[in-house]
Simulated assay, not measured.
Amino acid sequence: MQPLTEDDVRAAFVNATADELERLVVPMSFVLADWDHLDFFAWPDPRTRGRGYLVVERDGVPTGVVVRAADGGRSRAALCNLCHTMQPGNQVALFTARRAGDAGIRGDGVGTYMCADLGCHENVRLAAPLAPGELRASVDRRIDGTRQRVEAFVERVVGDADA
C-alpha cells in the first residue's frame, strides 16, 4: 500500500457518515505501519465495541469501509472468509458494512465472517509454519488470496456508487 496520512484515511471511507468520521480513531500502530508490506489496513474501533475499519487500495486509490460485528458469538471453530484461517468460534464474527451511496442510504449492506480483531493481515502470515517440503509460494498464495478477498468485499460495498 502507498503510505497514508490520517487525513488520507478519513477521506477514503465510502460508507461512513459525518459522525462516524468525526469519531474515527486511528490505532497507535498507524504511525508505525510498514506501508510497503501492507496489503490492506484494518483495525477495531477502540471506543465502540463491534465497529471496525478496513482500508484497501482500489486501482491505486485508498478506499475504506466501516464494518460492524454482529452481536453474539459462536461456540465452535470458524473460518474467516478473508484470510481463510481457522479460529476458535469467539474469534470470528459476522461483520456487515453499509453499502456506499444510495444503496446504503436505503439500508442495503453486505456481510462476511472475519477475524474478530480484524487481524487477517497478520494471521495469514502467522499461520502454521512451513512444513518440510512446503514452498514459500504457498504462503504467498495465501497472502495474495487474502488481499483479493478483502478487495472483493470492498467492491461489494462500493457496488454501483462509483458510477
Rank of each mutant, 00 (worst) to 15 (best):
M1P: 07
P3N: 03
L4K: 02
L4W: 00
T5L: 05
E6L: 00
D8R: 00
V9K: 03
R10H: 04
A11F: 05
A12Q: 11
F13L: 05
V14F: 03
V14Y: 06
N15M: 05
D19C: 02
E22G: 10
R23Q: 11
L24P: 10
V25W: 07
V26Y: 04
V26S: 01
M28D: 14
S29W: 03
S29C: 03
F30D: 02
L32M: 14
A33N: 10
W35E: 01
W35Q: 04
L38T: 00
D39M: 08
F41Y: 15
W43N: 12
D45M: 02
D45K: 01
T48C: 05
R49A: 15
R49E: 15
Y53H: 10
Y53P: 09
V55G: 05
V56K: 02
E57H: 07
R58D: 05
V61E: 15
P62I: 07
P62Q: 13
T63I: 05
T63R: 13
G64K: 07
R68M: 04
R68I: 00
R68G: 02
R68Y: 07
A70H: 14
D71N: 12
D71K: 08
D71W: 04
R74T: 06
A77M: 09
A78C: 03
A78I: 02
A78K: 00
L79T: 14
L79S: 09
C83I: 10
T85Q: 13
M86N: 14
Q87R: 12
P88Y: 07
G89V: 01
G89K: 06
G89A: 06
G89C: 01
Q91D: 12
A93C: 15
A93M: 13
A93Q: 15
F95C: 05
T96K: 00
A97M: 01
R99M: 04
D102W: 06
A103P: 06
I105S: 13
D108M: 11
D108C: 06
G109M: 00
T112V: 12
T112Y: 04
Y113V: 09
M114S: 11
A116I: 11
A116E: 15
A116M: 10
L118N: 08
G119I: 03
C120H: 07
H121I: 10
H121G: 14
E122N: 13
E122G: 10
N123H: 15
V124A: 07
V124Y: 02
P129K: 01
L130M: 11
A131P: 09
P132F: 10
L135R: 11
L135N: 08
S138T: 09
V139S: 00
V139C: 01
R141L: 00
R141P: 01
D144H: 13
D144N: 12
D144S: 11
G145I: 07
G145K: 08
Q148W: 12
E151T: 12
A152N: 09
A152E: 08
A152S: 10
V154L: 08
R156E: 03
V157Y: 02
D160F: 02
D160Q: 04
A161Y: 00
D162R: 11
A163T: 15
A163Y: 11
A163E: 15
